[in-house]
């Protein structure tokens, strides 16, 4: 129960103005792409599909319900009678704004029955990966230091030897 309260609290905090993912899906429930930006996720409906963000350990960091806008109302009031209706959309995409989690490495989307529709890797948006990249850079950089150290050591010994030999010559 305490864990549940904690998770709800965490999700509430994440929902405040910060960073969000914006996932693009087709109305046929196929994944198109995902990005991240500074912003706020709107409040969620009670039912619908569910998008969960998970950590590398598989912990669900947060979930968000959303509904597929597969219908559109259209209204034309330019005549004496209203002409409009609802049409079913095809070949259309829409965006789902999901709260961002620094530890989030996977996005899983479930359908209305709780079945897994797809999962997508989010690692590229995490800070951990950026750190990993910079670690790799540091590793490469250390090679130069070893080479540089060898030169310095040899030069140092050479200078000491040179000064000592001059001292001897002066004597």
């Amino acid at each position: 129960m305490k864990l549940k309260t904690f998770l709800i609290l965490m999700f509430f905090i994440a929902g405040a103005f910060g960073k969000v993912y914006v996932m693009e899906m087709t109305v046929d429930k196929e994944f198109v792409g995902i990005t991240a930006l500074d912003g706020k996720a709107p409040e969620e409906p009670e039912s619908g599909l569910k998008a969960s963000v998970r950590s590398s350990e598989g912990t669900v960091l947060g979930s968000k319900n959303f509904q597929v806008p597969s219908e559109k109302f259209l209204d034309d009031f330019s005549r004496n009678e209203s002409i409009g209706g609802v049409i079913k959309l095809t070949n259309t995409t829409f965006g789902v704004v999901i709260p961002f989690f620094e530890e989030g490495t996977e996005l899983v989307v479930y359908d209305n029955n709780g079945e897994n529709l797809f999962s997508k890797d989010l690692s590229r948006f995490t800070e951990q990966e950026e750190e990993k990249k910079s670690e790799e850079e540091v590793e490469k950089f250390q090679w130069w230091w070893i080479g540089f150290a060898v030169i310095v050591v040899v030069l140092l010994f050479f200078l000491i030897w040179l000064s000592k030999s001059r001292e001897h010559e002066n004597l």
Partner: peptide, 9 residues
């Protein structure tokens, strides 16, 4: 609509 969602967010 995806662009609009991103701008709105």
């Amino acid at each position: 609509d995806t662009l609009i969602s991103r701008l709105g967010a």
